[in-house]
């Protein structure tokens, strides 16, 4: 399926928003969240640019699963480090092991359901943390209501990740053409929500 000009524009806007976030939007955080958010939004920038340049064929690469797993892992790590100080080390370990496990299954070419189980557990926990932590923080009055946008953006981003991952494992949730059709818009809206949530 050929990438359309509209898809390219949406992906470019997503990359520009992510670039703004990396360059300006995360300056006030601690060191580890800055690194984590740089990796998360940086992955969005590179992925957006490479899809624009290489087309949807970029998604054929076996390492797309690894690269896309960086986004929820790093964003959730940044949030956990900032707002859940008691589980910092535990969560850092979980994210690291999860990422290494996904990388290992890709490098070794492990088949059957094992890689999918690994990805589902890692994405599931990370996605839940990104989506639910902002709601909990808002109800506790620890952050402003606009922070809910981070949860919303995280949920949409997680949805994009799941659509892509299941497509890669040949168990598509939606038809491939429909997934690719909605993906640029989904990524742009999720990135805009994340950037807005962190900004206000």
């Amino acid at each position: 399926m050929k990438i359309s000009p509209l898809d390219r524009i949406l992906l470019l806007l997503m990359s520009l928003l992510s670039a703004w976030q990396v360059a300006i939007g995360i300056n006030d955080f601690d060191t580890l969240p800055i690194i984590a958010y740089t990796i998360g939004f940086g992955t969005l920038i590179i992925a957006g640019l490479l899809i624009i340049i290489l087309g949807w064929e970029f998604l054929e690469s076996p390492f797309v699963v690894v690269i896309s797993s960086l986004i929820p892992a790093s964003l959730s790590l940044g949030l956990a480090w900032e707002y859940l100080p008691d589980i910092r080390i535990f969560y850092l370990s979980f994210v690291s092991i999860g990422f290494l496990a996904i990388l290992a299954t890709r490098l070794t070419g492990t088949t059957r359901n094992f890689p999918l189980i690994i990805v589902t557990i890692a994405h599931g926990v990370e996605g839940l943390l990104i989506s639910l932590l902002p709601i909990w923080l808002v109800t506790k009055g620890l952050v402003s209501v606009s922070f809910l946008l981070v949860g919303f953006g995280g949920a949409l981003s997680g949805l994009s990740g799941l659509l892509l991952t299941f497509m890669k494992f040949n168990k598509p949730i939606l038809e491939r053409s429909l997934t690719l059709h909605i993906l640029p818009g989904l990524l742009l809206v999720s990135t805009a929500a994340l950037v807005a949530g962190f900004s206000f």
Binding site: V22, G42, I46, L54
Partner: peptide, 27 residues
């Protein structure tokens, strides 16, 4: 912040250069 962004863009360049060595194709 701008250096961080430059680092991210550089990572993409290195990624593409490595891909062109190990997975060479016209595209």
């Amino acid at each position: 912040g701008f250096l961080r962004l430059l680092g991210v863009l550089t990572a993409g360049l290195v990624l593409m250069a490595i891909a062109s060595i190990f997975r060479p194709s016209e595209r």
